[in-house]
Every structure is written in C-alpha cells, then in structure tokens.
Nucleic acid binder design. Sequence first.
DNA 1: CACCGATGTCCAA
DNA 2: TTGGACATCGGTG
Length: 110
Amino acid sequence: MGQCSKFQKSIYNALLKIPQGKVTTYKILAAHLKCRSSRAVGQALKRNPFAPQIPCHRVIASDLTPGGFKGKKNGAAIRQKLKLLATEGVKFTNGHLAEPAIIWRFHQEK
DNA sequence: CACCGATGTCCAA
DNA sequence: TTGGACATCGGTG
C-alpha cells in the first residue's frame, strides 16, 4: 500500500465498507470521496493491485451495467465479475442490475 | 442510437 | 513538467 496515493487509499477504504451483497457505482463512490470525476475512480480501480481482496467488483456503472473488470470492459473478465457478484447474491438480468434497491449509498454507514 | 465535452487522477516520456 | 489515457457521466442531435 505504500505505493498508493491518498486518493487510492480512500477508494480502497471505502470499498471495504461495502457490505457483501450490495454494490455501488463509480459516480456514487466518487461523490463519497468528494471527487467530481467518476472517471478518476475507475482509473484507480483499474490500477488496483489487490483485486479481489479489495472488492472492486462491487462497483458498477451508473446505468446499472456491469462496468469493467481487470482492465477490460467486456469478455472473460466481465464474466468473472458477474460470477463473483452472483456468489454474493447480486444478480444481473439482460446485462443490467436486477435489483437497483441493493445499491449501496454511503450516506447511512450501515 | 451515436457523439462529445467536462472532469480528477495516473503514468510515461 | 507536460501531455495523453482512463473500468464515466450527462446532455444533445
């Protein structure tokens, strides 16, 4: 972790607060970090050297599509992401999140 | 549906 | 120190 910037530490710390079975979005996460660019968050996650110990797979896009995983926006990596999420009880149907109600918003801390 | 600009951060030269 | 590249988003045509 010594190689990580404060920004990345904040991201990883926030990720660890997401309960199993819930997901958040790049935008929500960015807002929680007081960062106006969700893109910056996505780039940090791509660089995440600790996947999947740090649950970067619990972050999806705002339109409820899976987003990316392991640097890829589609392909085997995404299938693995969906599989991981399925293991945690998060289901996707027809390419989008089945139950938007499980989206984790940081405002309630529990 | 496709394109484009705004936005914060990281990395290589 | 600087210029491009991003696991994005929202607006617009």
